[in-house]
Amino acid sequence: MDDKLCERLRTAAEAYRPDRERMLARVERGMAEGPSARTPLGPLPWLRVVGATAAVCGVLAVGAYAATSAGGGQTRGGQAAVSPVPSASASAQAAPGRVPELRTEDGPLWADGAVDPHSNAYWAQSNVTLRTTQPLSSLTVELRIAQTGGVNTTGSWRSLPEQDFTVSVQEEGGFLVYRWTLKPGRTVPAGTHTFAGQYNHAEGDRSADGDYFTANAARSTGQQVSVGDNFTSDH
């Protein structure tokens, strides 16, 4: 808006054409009347227009410079608008990983996870292997398959007796989750045991980098132990 006003004033000043003959006649008349009768001449009309233009533009320029220098940015509501500086806590955003920190051994319990070598471009099986050196009075195994496209269950199995476990499969937070829970009063004997989840997936080699499992158990003494692992094979 300020630049447009200055431009309009400059245009008006440049368009002004002084009456030269009238100006000369006024000067000659003043000289003939003598110094005592002569009225002091004010600024000529075209000089007044040019002077006003320069004064207005100068004030606007100084005001804009002062506001910009004080605020470091554009003005808003008569005050300089200063851009906020983001705090360190707001700018530091760590993207949480999908796989938690896991350990493959805890007390008598050891675990491993692997994609079955018989998996193909349309179907896969993920195997969870548990080995315990002591009987377990409780056990919950969770196998999480990341939804990478077209993932849906085709079944599951375990090497331990079927009647000893409650089994469920459902979608949770972007994962297909297989869950095996030991029924109350049952016991997992010492030894090596397998839990497997089977599923279809989108055609092609599927990355299992986002898949993982956890196993939470209790010894016969009541002490809690937990293990887990992630899958890194591509099928």
Rank of each mutant, 00 (worst) to 15 (best):
W157F: 15
E171I: 11
L109V: 03
T132P: 01
G191H: 08
A61H: 10
D205K: 08
T187W: 00
D229E: 11
S226K: 12
S87I: 03
G150A: 01
V50E: 14
M1A: 11
G149M: 06
Q147K: 12
G185D: 08
E203H: 15
T75G: 12
A61F: 15
A95R: 11
R26I: 05
P189L: 07
R26Q: 13
T104Q: 10
Q223S: 13
E203S: 07
A111G: 11
T192M: 03
E162M: 03
T221F: 01
D164C: 12
E101T: 06
R98P: 14
G63P: 08
V169R: 01
S69I: 00
A15F: 02
L182V: 01
L130Y: 00
T53Y: 01
Y212R: 05
A64Q: 14
A114P: 09
Y122R: 15
N230H: 12
Y199R: 04
Y178P: 03
P96V: 00
N127E: 15
P108E: 02
R131L: 08
E14I: 00
Q93V: 02
Q125F: 15
A15Q: 10
T68K: 11
R22E: 11
N120T: 14
P43M: 07
V115W: 05
S168L: 05
G77W: 14
Q198W: 12
A146H: 11
A208K: 07
N216A: 05
T148V: 12
H235K: 00
W110C: 14
A124T: 15
P40H: 03
M23R: 10
A81F: 05
L60E: 11
T166R: 11
V188P: 09
V151Y: 01
Q134K: 10
T214M: 01
S138M: 02
H193A: 14
V227W: 02
L143D: 06
R48M: 09
D19K: 11
S119Q: 10
Q125T: 15
E142N: 06
N200T: 15
F175Q: 05
V62I: 00
L9T: 03
R103W: 01
G63A: 03
S83K: 09
G51W: 08
L130P: 00
T221M: 05
V177R: 02
L143H: 00
A12P: 07
M23E: 13
A37V: 03
T39Y: 06
V56G: 09
R131E: 15
L160T: 12
V59T: 08
G174S: 03
N152S: 13
R76G: 13
V99G: 04
R158Y: 04
R48F: 06
V225P: 01
D234W: 10
R98K: 11
P84A: 11
S87K: 02
Y122N: 14
V141E: 03
V177D: 05
G191P: 12
G185L: 02
